[in-house]
Design a protein around this nucleic acid. Structure first.
Lengths: 196, 196, 196, 196
DNA sequence: GATGAATGAGTTTTCATTCAT
DNA sequence: TATGAATGAAAACTCATTCAT
């Protein structure tokens, strides 16, 4: 089996293992067993446990960014664009529960690769922020800008909502998207000008 | 040294260790060393690593709940109550960063004590929800209820805002509280009735 | 069993293992098994494989130095002193074949602790050098000084002779001591003045 | 690329690796990588790690013997012959530091191929011995024979001197050869008859 | 002639936990 | 109340070696 394919297979099974109990609780033995390969393969292909983790969060983060950027074309009216993007975001979380958990579900500090994970999170948050900004309907009477603080609050609300949703499968995607669209629309204008 | 005091000391040093890299990365050896006691003491007092973890999150959760409940008496007008409670929340996060992280910073699934942690989180979130609800000014025209989901979104926004704030010390607590009060007031009514 | 005693026992069994195939070929498993303890003890007491190795060569080097320094009092005439010290040296090699092998029998470069081993060897060589110098009969007609180079040559001859002797047990200590005394007496005056 | 050439290239890079930390610390992976070939080639050409090691020490030993035997023709007077050979010896050590170390720098016991290495060493030492013997000026008054032990001592002195020399580049080869010639001339007759 | 893919068995090291004192 | 001594089990990682192509 060619290397590139094997690498994808390994990353596929690594997701649930990393998501299960976090980085430290994940065992290379288990990942190897689930992938049906021997441990040395993991090290040949990814160098180390950190290398494997890094590869995994990168693949996941890359896909999330790509999907967000692809959702909501410029022809859609602002509000529809906002909804499409938020919907895409929750669709991603729904389809890649493990990836989402690994990316945003664990406290970063002191973990190996903490800085890389934090950087990836920052890039995603920044992308989301710009997206929200550009997706909201312009309102000449109430000009506003998503300040840095409020942007963090909104992204954090989305993360938290996504994590909550993962543990409440009885709530449909439609519903959670509606909820979040409402929060964004309501909260964004609350940004007091002048803070920061 | 009396047992009760020792237990508190041990829990004090356990916080940073659990917060550092999550439950699995925390080592009993390190906790014992930091507490200046021998490992058998840890087992005499807390039975096991899980027992120690349990004791820690309980103490933290209890204090958070107590402080929130104590803030904002019934004599305060609703909006002032909301502000006082939010201020207390940020004060807690500021003072107990480790405890906050351990309580809410790690995805629950598969972790030891997952159910206990989830239950504690639920109780805290529910308390916060009721608190926010009862702290908002009643508005006959826009009846609403803070659904569970929106409560999580709001709490998540708060956490994210708190993290952002800690990296921007030039922003005063007053300002960040104002920001968050604005978000809560705006976002809370956005909760669509009927969700959950 | 008290720690100090256990440490000595462990060092005792570590000798043959390190001497067997060099540092890399030695296995902590085997040392633990021979010492009748579990592997974690080795790490509790010595920290790491390198730590154990370090402790071993230090104990060995210390004893060699002590014995050399104690041999041949100032009351002995120079030649007798020389012979006593050389005899003590070979007695040490005979009694601590393993220790000698570990100390001087393996190439140093790139080995873990290479610098520490080299430093220890240097100190021993320097002590031997001073000892040889002060043990030789003064000869007014042929004043000479053991130059640095010739000192190294003489010490090297001793090492090599000792290693050779280890593989030729049919040669008695008396004989090898005689041989080396002869070499030292003959070679020392050969040091050309002016080199270095 | 023809096999014979490849084999030489592989042996060339194997030297530093074997010399670095001894037989056990050397890794086939590293040798393959340095040689720019795949590991299966190593096994095709040399059969095993031991086979490669064997080939390496044989090539090295063969070259040392050849060079020594070629130096100092029968037409040279004894003393000049001695000097030429010693000079050749130092030249070899200087040029093949790695090979020299692998051949003589590691204690033999328990190493794979111990007997083969020991045998090769014996042959080289014996050759050196005969060479020194036949190179010294005959002295009717002091008949003597270089015993095996003294030959080792002399060779060891040379190695030690060579190591010292490499760290003192301000000393010329001329000078160090002079020094060693002096030692050999002085020490060789010291060999007590009857030992071995 | 040459190699990418693959692994069984081994390495050092750490951890939660217990027991005799 | 308190601990020094001790360990079974498992972790991450490496190595010499082989096979299908």
């Amino acid at each position: 089996m060619p290397r590139a394919l094997r690498e994808q297979q390994i990353l596929d099974v690594a997701g649930p293992v990393f998501a299960g109990g976090g980085y430290h609780a994940a065992s290379m033995d288990e990942i190897a067993a689930r992938a049906g390969v021997s441990k040395p393969m993991l090290y040949t292909y990814f160098g180390s446990k950190e290398g494997l983790y890094f590869a995994y969060i990168h693949r996941t983060g890359r896909e999330l960014l790509d999907r967000l950027l692809a959702a909501g074309g410029p022809s859609d009216p602002p509000l529809a664009r906002l909804r499409l993007r938020i919907s895409e975001f929750f669709a991603f979380v729904e389809q890649h529960r493990d990836g989402w958990r690994v990316l945003f579900g664990e406290v970063t500090s002191n973990r190996p690769l903490a800085e890389e994970v934090a950087e990836l999170r920052r890039r995603i948050a920044e992308t989301v922020r710009r997206m929200l900004e550009s997706s909201l309907p312009e309102n000449a009477d109430v000009p506003w800008a998503l300040s840095d603080g409020i942007a963090h609050a909104i992204v954090g609300a989305g993360e938290s909502l996504a994590n909550w949703w993962l543990e409440h499968p009885e709530v449909s995607r439609e519903e959670v998207v509606d909820l979040y669209v409402g929060v964004v629309q309501a909260a964004a204008p609350a940004a007091p000008r002048g803070v920061r």
